[in-house]
């Protein structure tokens, strides 16, 4: 029997008086491409941090490949092994880009995981070319556009070739061209054996990067299904603030409203 990559059981987590996760249950199997859909503040980012071992449940449990993912276990060599296999791309690239240059940034992870320095140099150059950002290698992150920052942030984790890729709002704040490039990269890197968990409220991203969706609301999963099932359930999307009712007139004086989402597909 295949062991789940992640098994989340009755997890509760709160920031002081605000409950972020409320009795959450979720199972993620190896190689699955999952999207966590939800409005801002619904608990998606907290769950990603928890899956990356950066915060831990107040109640309930998280298991990684059948082993408990707990603070007292995630130390030393166990943590190194976990970091080699699971990587998180943060929503705000400024948080993730803390090194003085792009080259240093991409090299940071492998160096902390004790890769040989020659191998690090080689792999950094390769991944920068692969992501089409080789020309940025000596630039400081504060000189980059948001799209470039997002690509550097993605490169800084893809260099580790992790089995599990956790992505927090990968297309947030991108212009249409950068968004399209980012989706192309995500599609190209999410095939094969990788497990990809993407947190987003961008419905245009869903069909490209997911086989299955979980809808979040107030720290709970309120629905799940294939992208087609979810995207066609307008009542559900409206109820979870993923679309909004848009008033418009079809003829003079005939003003009405219905669920509406922005974006264009070709």
């Amino acid at each position: 029997m295949t062991v789940p990559i992640f098994e989340v059981r009755d997890v509760t987590y709160s920031y002081r008086e605000v409950t972020a996760l409320d009795g959450l249950n979720l199972t993620i199997m190896p190689g699955q491409r999952i999207v966590l859909l939800g409005a801002n503040g619904s608990g998606k980012s907290t769950l990603l941090s928890m899956l990356d071992g950066l915060c831990f449940p107040e109640k309930g449990s998280v298991a990684f490949q059948g082993e408990p993912l707990a603070e007292d276990r995630l130390i030393g060599e166990v943590e190194f092994a976990f970091r080699r296999r699971v990587a998180l791309v943060f929503q705000n690239p400024d948080v993730q880009l803390f090194n003085p240059t792009v080259f240093d940034e991409v090299a940071f992870g492998p160096l902390q995981l004790h890769w040989p320095k020659e191998q690090v140099r080689l792999r950094v150059s390769e991944i920068l070319e692969q992501m089409e950002i080789g020309n940025l290698k000596d630039r400081s992150p504060h000189h980059l556009s948001t799209g470039e920052k997002k690509r550097v942030a993605l490169a800084s984790v893809l260099i580790l070739d992790p089995e599990v890729l956790l992505l927090d709002e990968p297309t947030a704040a991108l212009d249409p061209k950068s968004e399209s490039q980012m989706i192309d990269f995500l599609v190209s890197c999410s095939g094969g054996r990788k497990t990809v968990v993407t947190a987003t409220h961008d419905l245009d991203l869903v069909e490209d990067v997911a086989d299955y969706c979980h809808i979040f609301r107030r720290g709970r999963i309120v629905a799940a299904g294939t992208p087609t099932e979810i995207l066609n359930d307008h009542a559900l999307l409206l109820n979870t603030n993923l679309v909004h009712a848009h008033r418009h007139a079809h003829a003079p004086g005939e003003l009405h409203s219905h669920p509406h989402r922005h974006g264009h597909r070709h």
Partner: peptide, 8 residues
């Protein structure tokens, strides 16, 4: 973010 990439 540093911890996530192996900083100990």
């Amino acid at each position: 973010a540093m911890r996530s990439r192996g900083f100990q």
